[in-house]
Write a protein that binds this DNA or RNA. Structure first.
Length: 508
RNA sequence: GGUCCUUUCGUCUAGAGGCUAGGACGCAAGAUUUUCAUUCUUGUAACACGGGUUCGAUUCCCGUAGGGACUACCA
């Protein structure tokens, strides 16, 4: 195989969505697997859709997931610049070349002209509804106008575009790594604009020119590009670049969790899950979107779950938890599933939990400390790590760690009604008063010792654990959930434990 | 409408002519338990349909139906 060079080529038109993340990830994994290069190219040829901050967002997102870039405007590289608006001059030359070689032509039709053509075709119920082999000879272009008239219009600075001259009656059979053979009939295709009247290339031209100049070996992109594959192939052919044309792989789309269609930002809002990796505020609309990071997902978990959406290790493997390094070793495009996959936020929760449990408490403590700080509580690392160990079983997200531990630092002011109804019995007050006496007499406030003392007391007096410990938990924490109660007592300490039970008896 | 892609449990998927169609999420039940969880066990549930090819099709071929994408001087 030739040197692997792949690119992730987003448009800076907004936040990087999940589809884009996965495309980037699969490009990255493929590059690493083959010791190749992962290149970031910014495709900003549409000036009207440019969104300030989007490019920075994309770069930050890739960094969060841990996809290190080998070539880009920031890290450098010998094929730069890597932003298409800075490569504008290149495309003019290549568009010109296609015209000179007879593969493309000038078109002077106004938007109104095009509108008329479409209406006309629609009225005739024609199956062909575009500017192409069947219609081009009735339009205003260098093919119909002749050389002299064309030159005159160009000299007069009449706005023009350059369109690809789609050949007629060619049956193409193209290769896609994931899908196998893709068939196309050029007579059904249209004459796409390659060069816009504002002097910018369209995606089609810029993409082929840049992939060629940057020596891209494999184009791994979303399925929405599959219909453009014949055009792209024909462009390579027209330029005479077929011998170095990259191989193509079109990734299946990520679909809505319910219902039909492509996953959109709306779905995330509607169903309550993030669709962007990081926090995003749209500078035009002011709309704010939560990201996976602030929702408490770990980047490793996020990467893992994105990798398994449409890809699997194959070979009867049932492994689901993979580090980035493992994925770099075993990833293959052949194991990418062909059909689109519905996004499953529930499974993502599970993935994150797996990672949370795998992480050492010292690492979790960092998240804990930060969240505590936001609530005005300062915790040292040792204590934070200890508490993380106590509560992690019940957590799915990093923020749950502090949420589930908050009562260690803030005494309850109210008590869960349902728990109260279930566990606070007429005899509870008496038992709590007796418990206070026991706690007061206990010097060694370790979890182990407390457990021994209470076990003896309960057994010796024919009491049940539930009758004593549930009300106590309710008074200590405000609700009946959480870790081993003697761990809670140890953590709170003698004084605070007694104080909570005392005030609890009064306030409940 | 046209073109192309696609189709295994509710969801993500394994499977590459012969299997009790496997795993995971979810859901349900049970076990553990002082609570909530965790964990463990068990269960639930799928080859879209119709034709071929074949001794034999989930698997290969052709239709049909469903789903998706594209059909801009957007990417």
């Amino acid at each position: 195989m030739r040197e692997v060079r792949v690119r992730f080529a987003p448009s800076p038109t907004g936040a990087l969505h999940l589809g884009g993340v996965r495309t980037a990830l699969f490009n990255y994994l493929f590059a690493r697997k083959h010791n190749g290069k992962f290149i970031l190219r910014i495709e900003d040829t549409d000036q009207t859709r440019f969104v300030p901050g989007a490019e920075e967002y994309i770069i930050k997102s890739l960094a969060w997931i841990g996809l290190d870039i080998d070539e880009s405007d920031i890290v450098g590289g010998e094929y730069g610049p890597y932003k298409q608006s800075n490569r504008k001059h290149l495309y003019t030359k290549y568009a010109q070349q296609l015209v000179n070689d007879g593969f493309a032509y000038y078109a002077f039709d106004t938007p109104e002209d095009l509108e008329v053509m479409r209406k006309d075709l629609e009225a005739k119920k024609s199956s062909i509804q575009s500017y192409g082999p069947a219609t081009r000879m009735s339009m205003k272009n260098s093919l119909t106008l002749g050389e002299e008239k064309t030159k005159q219009l160009l000299d007069e600075n009449v706005p023009y575009v350059i369109r690809f001259k789609m050949p007629e009656n060619e049956k193409l059979v193209l290769k896609d790594i994931i899908r196998g053979e893709i068939k196309a009939d050029t007579s059904l295709l249209d004459d796409k604009v390659l060069y816009k009247s504002d002097g910018m290339p369209t995606y089609h031209l810029a993409n082929i020119v840049d992939d060629h100049l940057m020596k891209i070996s494999h184009v791994i992109r979303g399925e929405e590009w599959l219909p453009s594959l014949p055009l792209h192939y024909l462009l390579y052919r027209s330029f005479g670049w077929l011998d170095t044309m990259p191989e193509f792989a079109h990734l299946p789309l990520i679909l809505k969790p319910d219902g039909k269609g492509k996953l959109s930002k709306r779905d995330g809002d509607r169903l309550g899950f993030p669709v962007f990796p990081l926090h995003w505020e749209d500078p035009k609309t002011g709309e704010v979107s939560k990201g996976y990071e602030e929702a408490g997902y770990f980047p490793e978990a996020f990467l893992n779950m994105m990798a398994l959406l449409g890809w699997n290790p194959g070979n009867n493997s049932t492994q689901e938890i993979f580090t980035k390094e493992e994925l770099c070793k075993i990833f293959t495009l052949e194991n990418v599933h062909k059909a689109g996959s519905k996004f499953d936020p529930e499974k993502n929760k599970w993935f994150n939990k797996q990672y949370l449990e795998l992480k050492p408490n010292e690492e979790l403590a960092e998240y804990f400390i930060e969240d505590a700080k936001k609530d005005g509580v300062t915790v040292d690392k040792a204590k934070a790590a200890k508490l993380c160990g106590l509560v992690k079983d019940r957590c799915h997200f990093s923020h749950d760690l502090w949420k589930e531990s908050k009562y260690f630092f803030v005494a309850p002011t109210e008590y869960n009604e349902a728990n109260k109804k279930k566990f606070w019995k007429p005899e509870s007050e008496d038992l709590m008063n007796k418990s206070i006496e026991i706690l007061k007499q206990t010097e060694d406030f370790s979890s182990k010792n407390l457990e021994n003392i209470f076990t003896d007391w309960i057994n010796n007096n024919q009491l049940s654990f539930g009758k004593v410990l549930n009300p106590m938990r309710l008074l200590l924490a405000g609700e009946c959930k959480g870790p081993h109660i003697f761990d809670i007592l140890e953590e709170l300490g003698k004084e605070e434990s007694i104080r909570r039970i005392e005030t609890g008896i009064k306030n409940i």
